[in-house]
Simulated assay, not measured.
Amino acid sequence: MNYSGKVVVVTGASSGIGEQSAEEFAKLHANVILVSRNEEQLQKVAIKLSKYQTTTFVYACDVSNKEQVDKMGKTIIEKFGTIDVLVNNAGFGIYNTVEKTKIDEMESQISTNFLGMMYCTKTFLPTMLQQRSGHIVNVASVAGSIGIPGMASYCASKFAMLGFSESLFHELKGTGVGITVVSPIMVRTNFFNHESFGKMPRYSTTSLNPKTVANAVVKAASSPRLEIVVPQFVRFVVWLKQTFPYLINPIVGGIFRRSMKSTMD
């Protein structure tokens, strides 16, 4: 797809997958709107993208706050007149058992990861439907298909994102608007900088470079598919889990429980 002059909104754009996705769209000469709570870091990203000689626009917004999201949407549509791609990427995780995780920590993950996606989608979808074009890319996780001990709230938010996206996928048939979920495995970003991860190994040999996921996000923005799993071979693992849960769940659960026990001892 030719993204030259297209308007792309990326949430969680101050670092990691969001920052890299914004850069990949900028390379393709899209007009990129950078959204996150950290305006100072967004300005640094905007300076970095200036070398691609395309329009960037910084907007500080907490996507878990629906009033802020509503104001953001109105500002962007007023300034650019349209939106072609919405990348719902903002999100974070906290690593702990349900017993030890505070209620407000659970709520904050659901509010940012799921409700933030829903608020942004509701804000920009009417414009896409009116113009009969556009694409929503929701950055989820393989943890949206496989429950991981110690990540219950995070998994819940990504399971919810996947279900919401699948429902909307069917609703959007014939409208000219598409939606695709990108579900990566572990990515080398500051996601694991949260103190709750403690002694947990930050990355493994299979962890992904943000650029790999960002390339999948760009691909997703013009894809007819509901979900793109990164890397592709992990889709087989998800298929096994969904097809033979009575065989796979004990194995997966055992692996994660052992890992969790070793990191929390």
Rank of each mutant, 00 (worst) to 15 (best):
L172E: 09
M186Y: 15
A220M: 08
A143G: 13
T82W: 01
F256K: 00
K100Y: 14
S157E: 11
N193G: 12
N31S: 11
V32W: 01
I77P: 04
V139N: 00
I146N: 03
S21G: 08
V98T: 15
N113E: 11
L168W: 07
S64P: 06
V229G: 03
I110P: 00
V10N: 01
K51E: 15
G147D: 09
Q20T: 14
A156I: 05
M1Q: 10
I148Q: 06
T112R: 01
M200D: 09
S133K: 12
S196V: 13
G144C: 12
I251G: 02
N249I: 13
I136A: 00
H29A: 13
S108G: 03
F57Q: 07
F256Q: 10
K44A: 15
V58A: 02
A22T: 11
A152S: 15
V9F: 01
K27E: 12
G18K: 07
V137K: 06
E24T: 09
D70H: 14
R257F: 02
K6I: 05
C61W: 07
G18R: 07
I228C: 13
Y59P: 02
K66Q: 09
S165R: 08
P250W: 12
S111T: 07
Y154V: 09
D265E: 15
S108M: 11
G134K: 04
I148A: 07
K44N: 15
L240V: 07
Y59R: 06
G91W: 03
S145M: 14
K71D: 04
G16P: 04
D70S: 14
L49N: 00
S223L: 11
A143H: 06
P231I: 02
S141K: 07
F114Q: 00
I179L: 15
Q131E: 15
I77C: 00
S108Y: 07
L226I: 08
S196G: 12
T205C: 04
G253T: 13
D70W: 14
I248V: 15
N31H: 12
F233V: 11
I47N: 13
F124S: 08
G116W: 10
M117I: 01
A156L: 08
T189V: 11
V177E: 04
I77A: 01
D104V: 14
R202C: 13
R235M: 13
S196L: 12
A60I: 11
L125C: 09
F159P: 08
I248G: 00
M151F: 08
S36R: 03
L28A: 06
M151R: 02
Y154L: 05
I179E: 02
K122G: 01
S108K: 14
D104K: 12
K48I: 03
N65L: 05
L226F: 13
Y3R: 04
L42A: 01
D84I: 06
K27C: 10
V217G: 00
T75D: 03
A90R: 07
F236C: 10
N215K: 12
N2L: 03
V218G: 02
G91N: 01
A216W: 08
K71E: 03
T263D: 14
